[in-house]
Design a protein around this nucleic acid. Structure first.
Lengths: 214, 214
DNA sequence: GTTTACATACCAATGGTATGTAAGCAGAAA
DNA sequence: TTTCTGCTTACATACCATTGGTATGTAAAC
């Protein structure tokens, strides 16, 4: 294999191949050799030229998955035509409609069987999504009166946690019916803060989302 | 090393050694050789005589950690002198005072850096603790009127999830102050169900618990 | 004499590294 | 403008210790 004039393409190829393998077979169960076998002629030298370790590949994979989402989240966060509450709600409806995420996660079996990947994902959510997108929306909501809480940071944390992890059928397998019940319960829990994170409309879409994965 | 007349002792020794290593260094980062080195003369043959795989050791370790807890949980669950709500509250105050769990987890760095262990732990909680202990207490509470919800299963799930994982300083590092704020927020969220899971007293103890780990 | 509780010796595969090599590219020389 | 020179980049190749796991051996216990 002769060298690529545009090495970023090679790097992206490695990320793409690793993404699919990590998602379908799990991080620990895909060896570097597995990745190499799907690289179309490239060898281990190429991988270790672009990445420091197998772990670094995982980091790049998770980052790449989250990046698309973050662009759109930023736009909603900064949409001054909406109240804080409305921004929050839009973030959720949007992330559910995100075709990218849908595709990426569609191939994944239970993420609890892919623990390293899951941990990286959770870390990313906690360190990026919450402080950069959810929290600003909540703070806006507190300021404009559409959200009521004494603990905006913790509320941001718990909302992201519940919707992104607890409610995630890829982490906790469940039927569409269970998912719907969980979503309704979550809505009830958010009442003290004036929030109705998940609209009825959105919950309907949940069941469709679930169906796709079955 | 001559053979032990009471092989269960050997098995328990392996579990004990593995527990400490898995907790302090993480599951993936402790090799079988590490375990063997702490076994005082026993070899790999002993390990594979008692366990089918490294994974089986982890399963035994997590089971053993949870087992003590479960005995006391069962007693509370079946204490007919208490309402369902009271049983739930006692379960939490009890598990926080559990010295065993305290000791076991005291040596652990961030569990998110020990992903396989964490996944096993979460699976255990979801498949054992929730249906066997939390849910019965909630159902009792619904029956006697001390708890109000249309979704007892999901409520059990979310309570365990939030208190055992989201509120767990070993999974999500936080200061005592942050922990207290999280606990208060959690209490607010439980209002719609007539629950005040974490008493003020208990929250105080949270801060002590945290201090121990610092 | 059979089973149990280990020990020993071995294995392929793994993540990682050290080194080799040829393509690309900038600038100097012609 | 072309050609030569030298450095850097983008890989390939060869090698490594360690890993989880297995097959077999062996002696104690009943």
């Amino acid at each position: 294999m002769s060298r690529n004039k545009y090495p970023e393409e090679t790097k992206q190829l490695i990320i793409d191949v690793a993404t699919e393998l990590f998602m379908t077979n799990g991080y620990e169960k895909t060896s570097l050799q597995d990745i190499i076998n799907h690289l179309g002629g490239l060898t281990k030298g190429a991988i270790y030229h672009h990445f420091q370790s197998k772990d670094a590949i995982l980091y790049a994979v998770v980052s790449h998955i989250c990046k698309d989402n973050e662009f759109r989240m930023a736009a909603i966060r900064d949409d001054t035509s909406l109240t804080g509450k409305e921004r929050l709600e839009k973030m959720f409806s949007d992330s559910l409609q995100n075709p990218n995420q849908k595709d990426v996660f569609a191939v994944t079996p239970n993420l609890l069987d892919n623990p390293t990947f899951l941990s990286y994902y959770i870390k990313m959510v906690v360190s990026e999504t919450v402080p950069c997108y959810i929290l600003p929306a909540i703070k806006t909501g507190v300021a404009d009166g559409s959200i009521t809480t004494l603990y905006p940071e913790e509320l941001a944390d718990i909302i992201m946690f519940l919707s992104d992890i607890w409610l995630n059928p890829l982490i906790f397998h469940m039927t569409a019916e269970q998912l719907t019940r969980k979503a309704k319960l979550l809505n009830q829990m958010m009442c003290p803060f004036g929030l109705k994170i998940l609209s009825d409309d959105l919950i309907m879409r949940f069941t469709q989302f679930q169906t796709v994965n079955e």
